[in-house]
């Protein structure tokens, strides 16, 4: 007698979130990206569907990054000091699904760029790049609350994804996303309870749950990856089991975490036994990303074009039924 697979049926599905709007939809993007919609645990096609595949966003900074190792800077050549060119390169050459514009230079300690600088850059990127846009603040509450609403205003209709909203500071950004039709990133410190609380608070302000993406906060391989993994897994199981306030796609900031790891950054001369630094860094980012794909990540924010290539290949393999 052939053995029959035990199939799990879940009562709930993850919300589908649309990022970017084409001209028919009131924006200027050449495509819109959908994430979410799965009604089971990742890649178990025997028992569930995964209508939208995970996507990769590439980070672009408004000031030249200071803490990137040379191995990471190299593929970008001389565009790192020119955010518009940088974004174009990610779109055309590296085939990014989305651009994640990080306004790090607006931070009072890192250049303190003004609102008008930020707004101008956002406008330039919108004009020069056709893929959907993620706009990220500088992690300075006060400055973000000043700048992000302005960026939301000038991108009205583009259905961007803007972040991050946190439990202590979500109201201003939620109001801006509500007013200008954007999606929001809701960040919680590796805690599904807080993730859920924040989603409730945001939806209670009137932003529908299908415009929220959860940033569960992740760590790189060797730096708490398994902790973040299990939190995502628990969140997903709760969501599929019926918890609508956790049924949002996940965004994982893989690049920033992986490239902070000593194992990814340290030079070969420092640790000869660790092998070539280029290979090491790329793999560190790719392995971290692949693990979070298994945990249910929908959007990966990554840095090195080569790791992105590896992870894209990995996604395609995972999606083969």
């Amino acid at each position: 007698m052939p053995q029959e697979l035990l199939k799990e049926q879940w009562p709930n599905a993850i919300d589908v979130i649309t990022i970017g709007a084409t001209s028919q939809e009131g924006g200027t993007r050449d495509r819109a990206i959908k994430v979410g919609g799965q009604n089971g645990l990742p890649y178990l096609f025997e028992e569930s569907d995964m209508p939208n595949k995970p996507v990769i966003a590439m980070e672009v900074f408004d000031i030249e990054p200071v803490d990137w190792p040379d191995t990471l800077k190299k593929p970008y050549g001389d565009v790192l000091s020119n955010p518009v060119e940088w974004a174009k390169k990610c779109e055309t050459e590296f085939k990014a699904d989305l651009i994640a514009l990080r306004l790090a230079g607006t931070h009072p300690d890192a250049g303190n760029k003004s609102e008008s600088d930020a707004v101008k850059l956002v406008k330039d990127i919108i004009a020069n790049v056709k893929i959907p846009l993620i706009i990220l603040g500088s992690n300075d509450e006060e400055k973000d609350n000043l700048i992000l609403p302005k960026c939301a205003e000038v991108t009205k209709g583009e259905k961007c994804l803007i972040g991050d909203a946190a439990q202590k500071n979500y109201k201003t950004l939620t109001a801006a996303c509500l007013a200008y039709g954007h999606n929001i990133i809701a960040e919680s410190p590796i805690d599904i309870n807080i993730a859920k609380q924040l989603n409730i608070l945001i939806t209670e302000m009137g932003l529908p749950s299908d415009r929220i993406i959860i940033n569960p906060t992740v760590g790189a391989l060797g730096y708490g990856l398994e902790y973040a993994y299990s939190i995502m897994e628990r969140g997903r199981i709760a969501a599929l089991g019926g918890d609508k306030m956790l049924a949002q796609p996940f965004i994982c900031f893989v690049g920033q975490e992986a490239w902070r790891a000593k194992e990814a950054k340290a030079s070969a001369s420092e640790f000869p036994e660790w092998g070539k630094e280029l290979e090491r860094g790329i793999l560190w980012e790719a392995v971290t990303a692949s693990a979070f794909l298994q945990a249910g990540a929908d959007i990966l924010i990554m840095r090195h074009p080569k790791s992105i290539e590896i992870v894209k290949e990995n996604i395609n393999q995972l999606l083969q039924k």
Binding site: D191, N193, I194, K196, Q197, I200, D243
Partner: peptide, 10 residues
Amino acid sequence: VAALFFPHTD
């Protein structure tokens, strides 16, 4: 942490 909400996260 789940109880640090009014009335409760759940």
